[in-house]
Simulated assay, not measured.
Amino acid sequence: MTESTSAEPFDTPRSSATQDEWPLYEVFVRGKRGLNHVHVGSLHAADDDMAVRHARDVYTRRNEGVSIWVVRSDAITASSPDEKDPMFAPSGDKVYRHPTFYSIPDNVPHM
């Protein structure tokens, strides 16, 4: 009886689903100097933990980041490019949104 070998890493969970059937994840990385997470790419993974591990291996090989977010693509809701003007146009008729109607204390920096 011969022992079967696999090319998969030992920590990859075995699943009846093939890699093409795994859900798609979007990957965001926060750089060492930056404050914001930036979208760096996408990958398929069997579960959330695998997505984080694969994102680390693929997108931070050279110590590019200090934090990784992975989000299933089917959980993202985005605005449509057709809604650009009504969604992001300034609200000139909503003057209460402008800071001129509020007194700002002197000890509040950078306002």
Rank of each mutant, 00 (worst) to 15 (best):
D57C: 04
A55Q: 01
P81K: 09
R62P: 09
V52Y: 06
G34H: 04
D57H: 06
D11F: 04
Y59C: 01
S91W: 08
W69H: 12
G41L: 01
V58F: 14
F88K: 11
W22S: 00
D106E: 03
L35S: 00
D49E: 13
N63R: 12
Y96N: 08
A89T: 13
S6Q: 12
H39E: 00
G34D: 15
D85I: 07
D74M: 00
H110V: 13
R56I: 01
G41I: 11
W69N: 15
H44G: 02
A55T: 02
L24E: 05
F28N: 06
D74G: 02
M50P: 02
D47F: 02
V108N: 04
V29D: 00
W69A: 12
N63I: 04
L24K: 04
E21T: 02
T18C: 12
G92K: 03
S73Q: 15
A89G: 14
Y59E: 04
S67F: 06
D20N: 06
T5Q: 11
S42A: 08
V95C: 03
D48A: 01
G31P: 11
M111T: 14
S4K: 10
S6K: 11
I76E: 14
H37N: 01
R61S: 15
T2E: 14
S91C: 01
R56F: 02
N107V: 05
V52M: 05
E3K: 06
P105R: 05
G31A: 08
D20A: 09
P23A: 13
S79W: 15
M1E: 12
S103Y: 11
D47H: 14
I76M: 04
N107Q: 14
K94N: 11
